[in-house]
């Protein structure tokens, strides 16, 4: 089994509506897999089902070959799945170091300051007082110090200035190069496709395209029709 995360024929309802309809996605280790799609396509819902925030109604989720579909969020997290939610979910009242300590023991959190040296001078500052960009770095770092096998990133560009997003995106590439399986969900296609290996396009809850990122960058009408439908 080469895939760190395999999503098969997954169906996810949300308040009575089928939001994700029979989706297959493979996320191999050492690669950045990009998931694109217009607003409301079901990207966030898909991620939430993968990490167990909401239940799936059919299909399966395999982590490293193990079926985790019936397991809870905590179990999945402990198997090496890390889900960075939308919206910079720092623990606002805790210091930067405590945010990291909540995720990993003290000896392991140094990695955070290696990948984001910007955070080093804020170690004892409350996370709620950081700027939006710094908070986004912190939540990514908080996931990374757990050394996950699979990293799910949900629209880390949301509400960030372009320059901050530009700072985050090479880090994501580096994490994959170090062996992590990354599933990057984005609204802004260009930057994500620039660093991705494979891409999927989700539209109305179904995959309408899958293939190498390079291919998608050139075939812009695929993207366009997905976003317009």
């Amino acid at each position: 089994m080469s895939c760190a995360l395999r999503i098969s024929r997954l169906e996810v309802p949300r308040s009575g509506f089928e939001i994700v309809r029979g989706v297959d996605v493979d996320v191999p280790a050492g690669q950045v897999t990009v998931l694109l799609g217009p607003n409301g396509a079901g990207k966030t819902t898909l991620l939430e089902a993968v990490s167990g925030v909401i239940p799936a109604s059919a299909g399966s989720i395999h982590l490293d070959g193990t079926d985790v579909t019936g397991e809870g969020r905590v179990r999945r997290a402990r198997r090496g799945l890390s889900h960075v939610e939308q919206g910079r979910t720092v623990f606002g009242d805790l210091s930067v170091v405590d945010n990291l300590l909540a995720a990993a023991p003290r000896p392991e959190i140094g990695l955070a300051f290696e990948i984001f040296p910007e955070l080093d001078r804020f170690r004892e500052r409350k996370a709620g007082l950081l700027s939006g960009g710094e908070q986004q770095m912190l939540v990514v770092a908080r996931a990374v110090v757990q050394r996950p096998k699979v990293l799910l990133l949900d629209e880390i560009s949301l509400g960030l200035a372009p320059i901050v997003f530009g700072r985050l995106i090479p880090v994501v590439r580096q994490l994959a190069d170090d062996g992590m399986a990354v599933l990057l969900v984005e609204q802004f296609a260009a930057l994500a496709l620039g660093i991705g290996d494979n891409a999927y396009v989700l539209s109305n809850g179904s995959i309408v395209f899958s293939g190498p990122c390079a291919e998608l960058s050139t075939e812009s009408e695929v993207l366009h029709s997905a976003y317009l439908s």
Binding site: P38, N39, L158, G159, Q187, F188, Y227, L228
Partner: peptide, 11 residues
């Protein structure tokens, strides 16, 4: 204040 946040490009 950021009325376009979360909208797709054409929107």
């Amino acid at each position: 204040d950021e009325p376009g946040a979360g909208l797709a490009e054409d929107e």
